[in-house]
């Protein structure tokens, strides 16, 4: 294996609350992702999944631990340095419509990262068209507003936005949870297609609470419970032979 794309070491987040004891949302978790790998992170709501990704994307400052992206420690980056990091790491959010500014067109949203990296207006427009087509939308979606398109179409546009800058790491934070089952399938098919096209240039961290989805989509799965990784391994292995009582409970509740 070549160099790890993402290495998370002892990552911890403690929320201190007035008058109440501190709450540890994420408790010393460590994992590594390799190029081209697709890792699933599953756990019930409140288990700290979103806190983990918010820390990896540096939208939230970790209390302890380090995040190493492509060999570079980004844990203490800020300002200009941090903005550069976002060219290598992008995220797809849980709520497609809310993840686009209601006052901007989808095209503006998709092209924003390109414009910020010095692309001209013309180049950006052409690239946005290409990205939309890659994600199965026609070019005229660029001039629409988020409330004018359906959730599934919006999520496709969100994937187009995330891939615009050609990141090496794509984080999907429950990217399919708010969509209905058929649309969910389409989005997974799209992500699968992109994975094949990009090969080892794209790694995906897939946050989900649906273990069946993770089984068909990911190479490896991490089970998060109360801020700790309680189990990890290949999805088939974990499902067939769960070691931790919580994982067993999770699997039982689906089957």
């Amino acid at each position: 294996m070549d160099q790890a794309i993402l290495k998370v070491d002892n990552l911890t987040k403690v929320f201190s609350r007035k008058g109440k004891p501190d709450f540890t949302a994420v408790d010393h978790i460590s994992f590594t992702m390799h190029p081209g790998e697709c890792v699933g992170l599953i756990g019930e709501s409140g288990s700290g999944k979103t806190t983990v990704v918010n820390m990896i994307t540096r939208l939230l400052d970790p209390t302890e631990g380090s995040i190493i992206l492509g060999g570079e420690d980004i844990t203490r980056f800020s300002g200009r340095e941090l903005r550069k990091v976002y060219a290598r790491m992008q995220m797809v959010f849980q709520t497609p419509t809310d993840s686009f500014d209601p006052r901007c067109t989808l095209g503006d949203g998709i092209g924003e990262s390109l414009r910020n990296n010095g692309w001209s207006r013309k180049e950006t427009k052409d690239e946005v068209t290409r990205l939309l087509e890659m994600c199965g939308l026609s070019a005229d979606f660029a001039s629409r507003y988020p409330h004018q398109v359906s959730g599934g179409q919006c999520q496709r546009a969100a994937i187009a936005r995330a891939l615009a800058i050609k990141p090496r790491l794509l984080i999907c934070d429950e990217a399919t949870s708010s969509l209905d089952v058929t649309i969910q399938k389409e989005i997974i098919a799209l992500l699968n297609k992109l994975r094949w096209e990009k090969g080892s240039d794209l790694s995906i961290l897939f946050i989900c609470h649906d273990i069946a989805l993770v089984q068909q989509f990911c190479n490896r799965v991490l089970v998060l419970y109360k801020g700790k990784i309680v189990e990890q391994g290949e999805p088939d292995e974990v499902i067939r032979n769960p070691q931790d009582p919580y994982t067993r409970h999770l699997i039982d509740s689906i089957l």
Partner: peptide, 26 residues
């Protein structure tokens, strides 16, 4: 706290751009 502002930060927009393009119009 809205997802689209997080997305704007992830797209590498600086503080001024975020304030004038995303916060003020909203």
């Amino acid at each position: 706290e809205t997802p689209y502002l997080k997305a704007a930060r992830l797209s590498g927009s600086g503080t001024w751009k975020i304030i004038f393009k995303h916060i003020l119009p909203n």
